[in-house]
Nucleic acid binder design. Sequence first.
DNA 1: CTGAAAGCGCTTACAG
DNA 2: CTGAAAGCGCTTACAG
Lengths: 346, 346
Amino acid sequence: MNASEIAKIAGVSRSTVSRVINNYGNVTDETRKRVLHVIKEYNYVPHASAQMLAGKKNKILGLFIIDRKNENSFNKMCTSSYFSPFSSVVIDVANKQQYNVLNSIVNENTDFTNVRELFLNKTISAGIFIGGKNNEPAIMELIESGYKIAVIEQEVAGEQDPFSKCIVVNSDSFGGAYEATKYLITLGHVNIAHISGDMEQLTAISRLEGYKKAMVDTGISIKSNLIIKGNYTEDSGYKATKKLLQKETPTAIFLANDSMAIGAMKAIEESNLKIPDDISIIGFDDIEVARYLEPALTTVRVPLLQMASVATSNLINANEENVNFYANYKMSIELVIRNTCRKLVE
Amino acid sequence: MNASEIAKIAGVSRSTVSRVINNYGNVTDETRKRVLHVIKEYNYVPHASAQMLAGKKNKILGLFIIDRKNENSFNKMCTSSYFSPFSSVVIDVANKQQYNVLNSIVNENTDFTNVRELFLNKTISAGIFIGGKNNEPAIMELIESGYKIAVIEQEVAGEQDPFSKCIVVNSDSFGGAYEATKYLITLGHVNIAHISGDMEQLTAISRLEGYKKAMVDTGISIKSNLIIKGNYTEDSGYKATKKLLQKETPTAIFLANDSMAIGAMKAIEESNLKIPDDISIIGFDDIEVARYLEPALTTVRVPLLQMASVATSNLINANEENVNFYANYKMSIELVIRNTCRKLVE
DNA sequence: CTGAAAGCGCTTACAG
DNA sequence: CTGAAAGCGCTTACAG
């Protein structure tokens, strides 16, 4: 069933069928009704590809999750409490506006080939990127090519920066880290360690800086031995904590995300230390698991769902208006106090 | 940049460009090389819609997550540790075979309109459905219409059943429930309660049956007071457990999934009972959180990732071969013993 | 091995 | 208000 057949049955031309489909004004109420009736009767839906070819707007968004971390596991994303809620909000918001989302996962750089193709062959008209390292070159290239793009957690270096030509949605990592560290300091901690995330990512960089600033602001000197590099995985949190505790005896650890905090808890338990009695820890993100841990994890909540929503609706706007606009959101974070930090009495 | 321009530059016809793109045999090595060179130089990628219109196969799969549960929350899927790993495997497997996946979420029946449209307007060529109730009518209709479909956890009633014309991937819910219940019985429990899932879903039905059969097989009579209806959400597990404990004193509860088990743990704690000392519990699914609970949850592992993989690759096969074939998988489950069940000594 | 031409199913100026 | 026609960018018989 196609437009020609509908036209014949309704006794009009294909043009008129098209006008009815696209809800144009210049059609008699009577013909419109007649055509609509035939359309309904035959369950006719125009061929999306034909519509696109003929010039209609594409309503498919690409959602690209960059996840280079767990390179050896069978399923790379399954453990991620971070990407999943984000995705579902993107889909929700998009669907509500008659958009659909094509979801793809980038495990390694070569996977960007597929991403590029989706733009080049016009399968998608715009894309959202999350999980990339700071200044991800493949994304920059796409922006330079003029595609409509929204990125999560990317730094905008200046007007020359490609990211200043797209929709940028960040959370206040610096502020969150500052607040988390300050909280520990307020509780009386001085010997505070930090286990950083993947330093290629903006969030990890900013969280480290927030930690340092809070220390400096309160006159606590920063000891490099207390700063250990992780990479945001649970395992890296475990290993970093092990390493840390071999040589140092901090009274608190600020971890750059919750997954690593889970690893840290394991390591701490193996060292026969109790949380928070012997050592306080604080995470970042407030992933779903955080509240179920024993003890429940004190952390910094990132408003990931709002970020997803903002990115999606802005991107859809850009596509509807047919304009590449610049927007830069910094979403505020919130300290979630649970049971892994203890007031130090001296 | 389109095929005509490439053709002109390379000094051949559009037909030849197309032949090179599609890797057909009848082109001289020399012309092929020349054309390929121009294509690379201009970064040309054929317009997907045009290809489709002209008769090429569509390589987009729909992934439809049916999630009617949490109707009032802002984000319906975000808490779901069940759908997310499934999705990522589907995407992974599809991407590896040059397929892309369009992901959509069905929160209510009207959302099926979008699903239908995606098939009708040829945006997708096949679809995977997960989370539906048993005998989901909207899916049946699509199968009857001849679309290529894979379903997860749907019962096949017979040859007349539409589901006997598609790819069905189930887990052994009955066997898993049987084994879980048997395990509790082996530990000495007799007074075993069951909190069921959403009884519209096949898994909930089968798990209840498995529970009953295990009881009957060991000569324990089934008490209807010990069977409470839940709906698979954490909250329903909480409420059902509350209700159960008001009137009964089971020594063990078999919950139809892990989310409800989490709710049950909360309710049990509020009743000042200890797990597993005062009461044993066992869940189903083995979601990510399960191992982090305190105490770590004994449960039945569903091979969800394999199910995703099997469904996807079968569906792609069907699409490639251009045939609607029937396949029915029953994936075996595995009892995962952790710390929420105790041996009863009498 | 290669090209000219028809056709896929639409939309959109252009006439009237 | 409506229709005939051109065109979107491909693929694929059909000739040669």
